[in-house]
């Protein structure tokens, strides 16, 4: 073995040693538990929670199908499909709302003079770093029966009895759009900020039309930011637990709540494990789609 190769081997060994604590703790506290979830999804539920160590595919079967309680006929599980559909639909809607509000906001911040920009960025970072639960409580206060909106509308005599807004899909959507909005603004801002605006002005000077300019110049600037922001909003929305729990009140359940229920009242751990892995798979699909989209983008630049 020549000296060069030995040196390199030494270096590799040293680098692995440096990474070892991180590798160990993440393996033990993040990867190993997930492996156990995979195992549990193939076991039999215990009578009152926990599992019996007997192989069973009922957990996975239960993700999409159900047996009738009384005559054991098999059909699609309406309840699970509804919750799955609701989770995807509400997450897409959340992404859309945050896009509509977030992109102009990011654009606005990025086009301020440098000193003002710092201030506006600061203003967006505060909600970003504020506890999710605190922000959910804040938005709940707006739409309770005796909350801000109802009190205001009652006072204005727009309505004569409080409108029930809590515990509905609308409440969950509002809550998620509110708490995830900063997640959209920041990446879009980062994308716009990198752009040299003289380029666009140059294009315009070359007598490109306004529309052409928007399509060929502005869109490519914000596109990577929009993709990153959408994925950053979509994924936590899909796996949200706290916000739907508070805003949905056990009726507008999302996937995260359905999973939790199997470990509490539902007492079906294998089903819960299988549902958890289904959610993880959905998130991974979104992530893969994202990497495809961004790496594809890089090619045509």
């Amino acid at each position: 073995m020549d000296a060069e190769a030995r040196l390199q081997q030494d270096d590799t060994r040293r680098r692995w040693a440096l990474a070892l604590p991180a590798v160990t703790i993440i393996t033990l506290f993040s990867i190993l538990p997930l492996v156990l979830v995979v195992v549990y999804s193939f076991l039999t539920p215990g009578d009152f929670g926990n599992v019996k160590w007997q192989l069973s595919f009922e957990g996975w079967f239960g993700v999409l199908f159900e047996r009738d309680i009384f005559d054991d006929t098999v059909s699609f599980s309406d309840a699970h499909l509804t919750i799955l559909g609701r989770s995807v639909a509400l997450s897409l809607a959340t992404t859309f709302i945050t896009l509509v509000l977030g992109v102009p906001t990011a654009w606005f911040i990025a086009t301020r003079p440098a000193r003002q920009r710092a201030f506006w960025l600061f203003m967006i970072t505060i909600p970003f770093w504020t506890n999710l639960l605190v922000r959910t409580i804040a938005v709940q206060e707006m739409i309770r029966s005796e909350g801000v909106f109802n009190s205001l509308f009652l006072w204005l005599r727009v309505i004569d009895a409080p409108i029930q807004m809590m515990f509905t899909n609308f409440a969950v959507l509002l809550g998620m759009a509110y708490v995830f909005l900063p997640l959209m603004v920041l990446p879009v801002y980062a994308a716009i900020e990198k752009f040299d605006f003289r380029l666009a002005e140059a294009a315009y000077d070359l007598y490109a039309s306004r529309l052409y300019c928007a399509r060929k110049v502005i869109l490519p600037i914000v596109r990577p930011g929009i993709i990153a922001g959408s994925i950053l909003v979509f994924i936590p929305s899909l796996s949200a637990y706290v916000t739907p729990r508070i805003m949905g009140g056990g009726k507008s359940m999302m996937l995260g709540n359905l999973i939790e229920m199997q470990f509490g009242q539902g007492r079906n751990w294998p089903l819960g494990a299988a549902l958890a892995l289904t959610l993880t798979a959905l998130v991974l699909v979104a992530l893969v789609w994202y990497t495809r989209l961004t790496s594809g983008k890089r090619k045509d630049v």
Binding site: S30, I31, V37, Y40, I259, F263, A273
Partner: peptide, 16 residues
């Protein structure tokens, strides 16, 4: 890896 797994999934995994 911890960034890619939904929090609720990690939570039940750790619970087990």
């Amino acid at each position: 890896q911890p960034l890619m797994v939904p929090e609720i999934v990690l939570a039940i995994a750790l619970l087990i």
